[in-house]
Design a protein around this nucleic acid. Structure first.
Lengths: 207, 207
DNA sequence: GGGCACACTAAGCGCTCGCTCAGCTTCGGC
DNA sequence: GCCGAAGCTGAGCGAGCGCTTAGTGTGCCC
C-alpha cells in the first residue's frame, strides 16, 4: 500500500478537515478497511491497527464504529455534491455542463475509489437517523443532475422522453464505477471520465 | 413479506434445481437475508430461523455459511449468462439483439432484485477458489455483450470508438439496477428494461 | 517542580458468532 | 415388530466481536 498520488481532477488531499491528526489517521484507516472488506467484516481492532494504535484509542475520538462510517459517508457525500454543483453552475450550454458533471463525478469515483465505495455501498450499515440524513444528500445529488437535463430539454439541446429515468441511469453509470474500477488497471480516471461523458451525451440525444 | 409473484420476463419459479426441499428453503432464506443485510451482517441463526428450522439444521445441507453464498452466486451467474446468451444468439440485427439482451438482463436485475443483489455485490465475501470460478463466469457475461457490440460495429449498425469501455458501461448500467430498484416503487421491471434498452442503443449510436 | 488535563495502552467484560455433537423422532425394508 | 439411516433439535464450545475501565506516560501552566 502506497500513499495515494493519482490526480483526481484538481482535488487537494482530502480529509484535511478532520482533526486532530490521530482522528484523521483513524478515519483514513477506516475508509481503507471498509472499502476492502465492507463495514461489517471490518473490526475495530483492524482499523486501530492500520492507524498504528491500540483498539481502545479509537474510542477516544469516536463514540462507536458506526460514527466513523457516518462521518466518512457525510464528508464523502458533501464532496460528491460539491463536485456536481460546481459543474452544474458554471457557464455554458447544458451539454457542456452535463459533460463536465459526469466527467468530474466519474473521475472522483475512479480516483478516490476507496472513499466512493464506502460512500455508495455501505449506506445500509448506518442507523435510521444517519441514513435519513445521507438520503437527503442523495436527493440533492439527484436534483443537480436532473436540473441540467431538464434545462437541456427545455432549450431543445437534449432529446429525452423520461427525464427522471434518464437521470437515474446517468447517476447509475457514474456510481457503478466505484464497483469495478481497478486502480492498477489499464484505464486512468481521466480516460473513463471522458468516455462516460461522451456516452451520457449520447444518452440524452445531445445535438 | 409475501411470496414473490412479479413477472420477470418468462422465468419459471427459480431454485427448483435445489433439492431436497429443506435445502431449497434454507437457500431461499439465505438469499433474502444476504440481500437485506449483506453476507457478513447475516447470521446462520437468522437464515435457519427464516427457513423455520433450528440453527444446527443448516449444517446438514451445507458445510459452511460460505457454501450457501457460493451456491447462490453460482446459480445466479449461470442464470444471468443464460439470459444474455439467449438474447445474443437469436435472429435479428445487432441492435435488436442488444436491445433484447439489455432489456431482459435489466428485467432480471429488477424483478429478481434480491438474488441479483447477492450475485453482484457479495462476490468479495467468497474465498479465493469460489471467487475465481465466479470471475470466469463474469468474463463470459462480458464476452456476450461485447460480441453483440462488435458485430454491430462490424456491420456498420453501431458507431462506437471504445468497444471495451462501452461494453463495461452497458453492463454497469444493467448491474446497478440491483442497487437502486425498489420493488414497491413507481417503475415496473418491464418499464426499466425498455428505457434502458433505448438508452443503450443511443450509447452505441445505433442507426 | 508540582499538579493536572489529555492521549493513549493493557487487560478484559459480556455477548454473539460459526459451528459441533449427542440424542430424539420418523420411516422404509424385511 | 425390529433396525438402521436420515433429518432434525437443544445445548453448548471456543473464538472473536464492540466497547469499557483502570492505569500510565507526557507536556503545559504557574
Amino acid at each position: 500500500m502506497s500513499t495515494a498520488e493519482e490526480t483526481t481532477g484538481g482535488e487537494i488531499e482530502p480529509w484535511e478537515e478532520v482533526t486532530p491528526d490521530a482522528a484523521r489517521r483513524l478515519l483514513v484507516a477506516a475508509v481503507e478497511a471498509f472499502a476492502e472488506r465492507g463495514y461489517h467484516a471490518t473490526t475495530t481492532r483492524d482499523i486501530a491497527g492500520r492507524a498504528g494504535m491500540s483498539p481502545a484509542a479509537l474510542y477516544i475520538h469516536y463514540k462507536t464504529k458506526e460514527e466513523l462510517l457516518h462521518r466518512i459517508s457525510r464528508i464523502g457525500h458533501d464532496r460528491a455534491l460539491e463536485i456536481l454543483r460546481t459543474a452544474a453552475r458554471r457557464e455554458g450550454t447544458a451539454a457542456e455542463r452535463l459533460a463536465d458533471a459526469v466527467g468530474s463525478f466519474v473521475r472522483w469515483h475512479a480516483g478516490r475509489r476507496t472513499t466512493a465505495r464506502v460512500v455508495q455501498y455501505e449506506l445500509d450499515a448506518l442507523g435510521p437517523d444517519a441514513r435519513a440524513e445521507i438520503l437527503a444528500l442523495r436527493r440533492e445529488v439527484d436534483g443537480e443532475v436532473r436540473g441540467i437535463i431538464e434545462e437541456g430539454v427545455a432549450s431543445g439541446e437534449f432529446d429525452v422522453l423520461d427525464v427522471h429515468g434518464t437521470t437515474l441511469a446517468v447517476l447509475s453509470l457514474c456510481i457503478d464505477v466505484a464497483r469495478w474500477f481497478n486502480v492498477g488497471g489499464p484505464r486512468t480516471p481521466e480516460e473513463v471520465g471522458a468516455l462516460y461523458a461522451d456516452l451520457v451525451l449520447r444518452m440524452v440525444g445531445a445535438k
